[in-house]
Design a protein around this nucleic acid. Structure first.
Lengths: 240, 240
DNA sequence: GGCTTTATCTGCTCTATAGCAGAATAGCTG
DNA sequence: CAGCTATTCTGCTATAGAGCAGATAAAGCC
């Protein structure tokens, strides 16, 4: 008996909403008990299964923990591992402002290895954007982005010195970025990199090469980042 | 009416089992339709909700896709990114044999920073196992494991030169390893590391430090790995 | 005080059923 | 033939209950 002729969100989502709100507003702190299944069912005038459904999803999201016999509790705030964020976004979330120094925007048609990674013909025209990322006026990463020149020609006019390339693509092109496949290793800084990052030649840098895909599964751009190892560690979580 | 007085696994898990089996044995291929909720309910003599529960979990695991109005279908085989595997396992999956040279197994009580990461008192006794990992008789990683000495005293007698530490812990201690929180950066090889890995001093190495947790969320061991960057790249996938 | 039992709380599995909404298809119509 | 319609699939939301099993706190006992 799904009594939802109007166009409300389903009941279990509304229940989730009330719980999320109380957690986000700080009324419920990590470790606090959340209403039990049976309580929720009574309060919201739904059946037990519906209340369970609501809590089950919150659990899978990692917002709450459920212990049989004990109850449902607000989970400790989780660090967002493995999250694909642009550097601009990452900095912003820590209250730092991300500045970039735009080194060059060029168009090449001989980057066949990179074209291949983007699933494009070998001689496709690619827009190459090279930036030095800095925080507190100190450079900490050298980033080179490659994207299809024809499709994203206007990117060269984007405010790449300030803004996020991610945000630009999502806003101006309506692209929903979904995931990145990355290769991570260490290299020694070549002379040019060393100078740009203000580190000694040959100093170890963390190299992250990523192919970023849209939610439709299409490869959108290729990014190589060289990170000063004294300013950057990558945090991820892996599951068995 | 949970009619499970015996000690069977729950009905929804048995249903999952039959579906998993058919997929693994190749009777069902990617894209093939799986029995619908109502069919499953009839076949297994359970209610619709129970059949749904079974399919719901398989969907979350990524094994099947469900399209309203259309049906439930076997999902395309997914690549397992971000999977926590021991080096032994990783090598084995590529048909290579992982050898290790055991450098030392000692017990320390002054590794307070590492004890802290394992959520132990600062002066806890820790068993330290240092190994050089090699493939094709060439060293490619220097790995240092720290685990609570009291709980895992017998580890020093484990066949660490051949076998996997993961397998040992899971088999002998019944521990289910679940996930690792990792910090990844680049460093320069110090003289000792350089010699053990047969690379020049100061050469860049990929450093991976991981705290490995059991499925109960308990921190089990801490591992620092130093990887020759010319022999190893880490592959992960990140989501937005 | 410390120990054990018991009642009661919690989440988990499950039933049998209902109506809703999207997708596919079989059939009809111009 | 192409285009619409109605039927029949599918999964999704929801009900109103039941008994089971683990955790916890209260009650009883030594």
């Amino acid at each position: 008996m799904a009594r939802n002729n109007g166009n409300w969100p389903p009941a279990y989502q509304r229940i989730q909403g009330t719980i999320r709100e109380r957690i986000e507003k700080g009324h419920l702190k990590p470790g606090d008990a959340v209403d039990s299944e049976r309580e929720l069912a009574k309060i919201h005038h739904v059946s037990l299964m519906t209340a369970r459904h609501a809590l089950g999803e919150l659990q899978r999201e990692g917002l709450v923990e459920r212990r049989r016999g004990a109850g449902t509790f607000v989970a400790p705030p989780k660090i967002h591992f493995n999250k694909l964020t642009s550097l601009s976004e990452e900095m912003a979330s820590r209250g730092l402002s991300a500045r970039s120094r735009l080194l060059s925007t060029t168009i090449v048609d001989n980057a066949n290895d990179i074209a291949a990674r983007l699933a494009l013909p070998a001689t496709s025209r690619l827009l190459v954007v090279e930036r030095v990322r800095q925080a507190a006026n100190e450079p900490f990463a050298l980033e080179t982005c490659y994207l299809p020149a024809d499709e994203f020609a206007d990117t060269s006019k984007a405010p790449l010195e300030r803004g996020s390339l991610f945000a630009f693509l999502e806003r101006e092109h309506g692209i929903e970025l979904a995931h990145a496949d990355e290769e991570i290793d260490a290299t020694a800084a070549d002379p040019r990199t060393a100078e740009l990052l203000a580190i000694p030649r040959g100093a170890p840098v963390l190299r992250i090469r990523q192919v970023i895909h849209s939610s439709q599964g299409k490869a959108i751009l290729y990014v190589q980042g060289l990170y000063r190892s004294d300013r950057h560690t990558l945090r991820i979580r892996r599951f068995r």
